[in-house]
Computed example of a mutant assay.
Amino acid sequence: MNRIILNGITWEHSRGYTPLVASSQRFSELHPEVEIRWQKRSLQEFADFPLEQLASHYDLLIIDHPWVGRAAVTQSVLPLDEYLSVSYLEDQLKNSVGQSHLSYHYDDHQWALAIDAATPVASYRNDLLQKNNIGIPETWKELIAMAEKKRVAVPGVSIDLLMNFYMFCLAHGNVPFQNQEQVIDHYTGQLALETMRELWSLTDKKMFEYNPIDVAELMTTTDNYYYCPFAYGYSNYSRKYYAENMLSYSDLIEFNHYGKLKSTIGGTGIAVSSSSASIDWAVHFTEWIVSPNIQSGIYAGNGGQPGHRAAWLNQEVNSYSHNYFADTLPALERGYMRPRYNGYLEFQDKAGDYIREYLKKGGTAQIVLNSIDHLYKKSRL
């Protein structure tokens, strides 16, 4: 028997790799004629490497949703709506975690299926809060008070600062990217940047080198930080034995009169290369791994953070993740979806650098806003 080999590419973290390997192993047990091999890249490589180049080497690709504009232009991955039934896609939409499913729908086609869902949420060391008789911050004022005591950790790398900039633009009353000239009106943008500086000026400068995984590792391996107000959630750290100390997760804080913050969704989708020599099997695996039973079972059980809502509501899944999914689902439901046009990623790659420099070294908000507007207009050409 000639075995069919499907090669896949994903990102380098237990959440992005282990559940794929476990699910693929089971798929091969059910279909002995198929073997699925996964390779992994760093988060930065995963975000930067052109989709069409990856698609020429792999059958299955785990992608970020901002890539779908590029996918529509290059046709490097399959429009899955032409391969999957209407009823299946309707179920995916109905059971989407927030806008996760829709984030891969662009130019009237579905370029990937949401295999993983995430947005910035709050995390904390419940043991340390209880030991020190400290409550979980519920408002911006309470967060700032804790930050003044140097007990708050928060990511400060460029990409996460940019995602949080969108969040604070929303918190100050306006939605980013409403025209092709400005990322946000400068009055709102200045308020957002000043709000961010209020918090980041109180945090350790090393946070500017930390992404969400770094923050989670820091909080679970030391006792110096009690609370993180917003970082892309990783249910792995809420599971017993994964880390030295366990994190608890919750919804985001209230921001003044706005209500609870509305963060920028992330997550990943699974796409099928249009260059695959085994399209039928690649599509079949994609359909199978994103189905509710697999998402709630072997995928979630092996460290995955599913894209199917059934898993987030599943009592067993919540039991072994200490209610990570049920407690953070409201934040996912509110999540903001960033642009996905072809060229957006060129903007995203550089825009956060200006915000990071402003928060780290000072300067004027107007220069930051002018700089990101210039990048934005250039990316639309």
Score class of each variant (00 low, 15 high):
Y58R: 00
G335D: 13
W140F: 13
R309Q: 11
Q75I: 09
Y106H: 06
A55V: 01
K40G: 09
N318Q: 05
I372Y: 05
L60R: 00
A122Q: 11
G363D: 05
E287K: 03
H109Y: 05
E254F: 09
V73R: 09
K262L: 04
D81K: 10
Y242V: 08
Q178E: 10
W200L: 01
Q44T: 07
Y241Q: 14
E52I: 14
Y324G: 03
N224A: 10
Q180W: 01
A311G: 02
N132M: 03
S87G: 11
L191V: 03
F27P: 01
S103F: 00
N164W: 11
S291M: 13
V317M: 02
S235D: 09
N236R: 06
S28C: 12
D353L: 11
G266A: 09
H57Y: 14
K240W: 15
G269Q: 00
G135W: 00
F325K: 00
R334C: 15
K141S: 13
E244W: 05
Y106W: 10
W111R: 00
K141M: 12
P120A: 04
Q25L: 05
E52D: 12
A112Y: 00
G343Q: 03
E35P: 04
S87E: 09
S235K: 11
W11R: 11
L102V: 14
N323V: 03
N132Y: 12
Q366C: 01
R239M: 02
Q182H: 10
M207P: 00
Y299R: 12
S379C: 07
A277P: 06
P330F: 06
Y358T: 01
A192L: 01
G69S: 13
I253C: 04
S278L: 07
T222Q: 06
L170N: 10
S321C: 09
S158H: 05
S278W: 09
P79F: 10
R309Y: 13
N95A: 06
A153Y: 02
A326G: 12
A310T: 14
R356P: 06
I134C: 14
I4F: 06
I4G: 05
L93T: 07
T364I: 03
P19S: 04
A311Y: 08
A326P: 06
L162T: 02
L193V: 02
D116K: 11
G189P: 02
G16I: 15
G297M: 02
Q348C: 00
K262Q: 12
R125V: 07
I9K: 07
V21W: 10
D349V: 08
D251I: 15
Y354C: 00
N256Q: 15
R3S: 11
N126W: 01
R356T: 02
M246Q: 15
P339L: 06
G189H: 02
H374M: 05
R197L: 01
I294M: 07
N133I: 09
H322V: 09
I4A: 11
L162Y: 09
A277C: 07
Q182Y: 12
I372S: 02
E181V: 08
P32D: 06
I134S: 13
V215Y: 04
D327W: 04
A216W: 11
T195F: 05
H322D: 04
D127Y: 10
A71F: 03
E142K: 13
M1D: 15
E148D: 12
K206A: 10
G307T: 03
P66Q: 03
S371L: 08
L89C: 04
W312G: 00
R151F: 06
Y336A: 00
I372N: 03
T221D: 15
N7T: 15
I134F: 09
